[in-house]
Amino acid sequence: MPKINGNEIRPGNVLEHSGGLWAAVKVDHVKPGKGGAFAQVELRNLRNGSKLNERFRSADKVERVRLEQKDMQFLYETDGMLVFMDTETFEQVELPAEILGERRPFLQDGMTIVVEFYEAEALNATLPQKVTCTVAETEPVVKGQTAANSFKPAVLDNGVRITVPPFVGQDEAIVVNTETMEYAERA
Rank of each mutant, 00 (worst) to 15 (best):
T134G: 05
N149L: 08
P32K: 07
E94L: 01
V142A: 12
G144P: 12
M85F: 00
A136M: 06
G169Y: 09
P2C: 09
G101E: 10
I113G: 02
L156E: 06
F90A: 01
S58M: 07
K26Q: 13
E116P: 03
H17C: 03
M1S: 14
R44F: 04
E172K: 08
I9D: 00
L82K: 04
L67N: 08
N5Y: 10
S18N: 10
S150P: 06
E182L: 06
L15Q: 02
V175F: 05
L82F: 06
K26N: 11
P128T: 01
G36T: 13
L67V: 11
D109Q: 08
A147G: 14
F151I: 15
L52V: 06
V14Q: 03
P153I: 12
I99V: 12
L100R: 05
L107T: 00
G35C: 06
P2S: 13
Q92D: 02
M111N: 03
T146F: 14
A148K: 15
G33I: 11
V83M: 05
K3C: 10
V135F: 02
V160W: 06
E77V: 05
R66P: 09
A184Q: 08
S58Y: 11
A147R: 15
T132Y: 02
N5W: 09
M72G: 00
E77H: 07
G110V: 00
R186N: 07
S50D: 10
T138P: 02
T178G: 04
L21G: 07
F56T: 07
P128Y: 01
D157F: 04
V142I: 14
E8T: 06
V142D: 10
G36I: 11
V176H: 04
G101H: 07
K3D: 11
E119L: 10
V62M: 04
T89W: 01
E116L: 10
Q73R: 15
K61V: 07
E121V: 03
A97F: 02
A37N: 09
M72K: 00
V83N: 02
E179C: 07
V93Y: 00
V135E: 03
D171N: 14
E77R: 12
A136W: 06
G101C: 08
G110L: 01
V114E: 00
E98C: 06
V30G: 04
D79G: 08
V25I: 14
V135R: 01
A23S: 12
V155T: 14
